[in-house]
């Protein structure tokens, strides 16, 4: 969602798939040595993206060496994706790299919540194990309305669990944008998730100033 500061409702995400196993923890998603980077500083947000998933053991790079963007907008994983630390740097790193959705059997609680709060990534749950149904580089189509993912190489389509209440929050660009839109907190949104694109929108009513 980083490229967008306006609200875009995403229904179809199409692109190459990166495949991961079970219990991919946040230290593998963004190793702690990069936590000196502050996600709200635009150039450091980009840098977080360049390091996304460099902590994986025995896996190809998610983001090519020297690049800041990934070739894989969709990640397919097993159980308990994003376990470990509460670092919001984790969904942000994947999102900053251009990852748009994860399809996993289950998520660790804080990671799931951080995906929604930041609006960086759609954390979609799959009732069946899909790790064996994709290889890295397969083209896939993720349909968030129909809650399906199709492997365009094999032609196989898999039913996913609907995102439910999380979907409109991510569509809106994260917790703040959603909360303002739905009147939960006052004021106009400054920007969506990820980097605040200064100048992209002008807040008309600052929320909690004294």
């Amino acid at each position: 969602m980083a490229e967008s500061t306006t609200v875009t409702k995403t229904a179809i995400i199409r692109g190459r798939v990166f495949v991961l196993g079970d219990n991919v923890d946040t230290d593998q998603i963004i190793p702690a040595q990069y936590l000196n980077l502050v996600p709200t500083i635009p150039e450091e947000y980009e840098k977080l993206g360049s390091h996304a998933l460099v902590g994986l053991l025995d896996a190809p790079r998610f983001v090519p060496e020297g690049a800041t963007k990934t070739l894989y907008p969709i990640l397919v994983a097993g159980r308990n994706f994003g376990c470990g630390s509460s670092r919001e740097h984790a969904p942000i790193a994947i999102g900053a790299a251009g990852g748009r959705a994860v399809v996993a059997e289950s998520y660790a609680r804080i990671f799931f919540r951080n995906c929604v709060a930041t609006g960086e990534l759609y954390p979609v749950e799959s009732p069946t194990r899909l790790v064996g149904e994709f290889v890295i580089g397969d083209e896939a189509e993720l349909d968030l309305d129909a809650s399906t993912i199709t492997n365009l190489r094999t032609g196989k389509r898999f039913a996913l669990s609907p995102l439910g209440d999380a979907r409109p929050v991510i569509d809106a660009g994260g917790l703040f944008a959603y909360a303002r839109r739905s009147g939960m907190i006052p004021g106009a949104p400054t920007s969506g998730a990820g980097v605040a694109d200064s100048g992209a929108s002008v807040p008309v009513n600052r929320a909690v100033e004294d």
């Binding site: 500083i41 670092r87 807040p203 929320a207 909690v208 100033e209 004294d210």
Partner: peptide, 22 residues
């Protein structure tokens, strides 16, 4: 120190540069 700077950045962005904590 690891998550505070990002939290503060979002706080300022969303509530205003001069907003006060609750």
């Amino acid at each position: 120190d690891v998550c505070g700077p990002g939290t503060i950045g979002i706080f300022k962005r969303e509530f205003g540069e001069h907003a006060r904590v609750w």
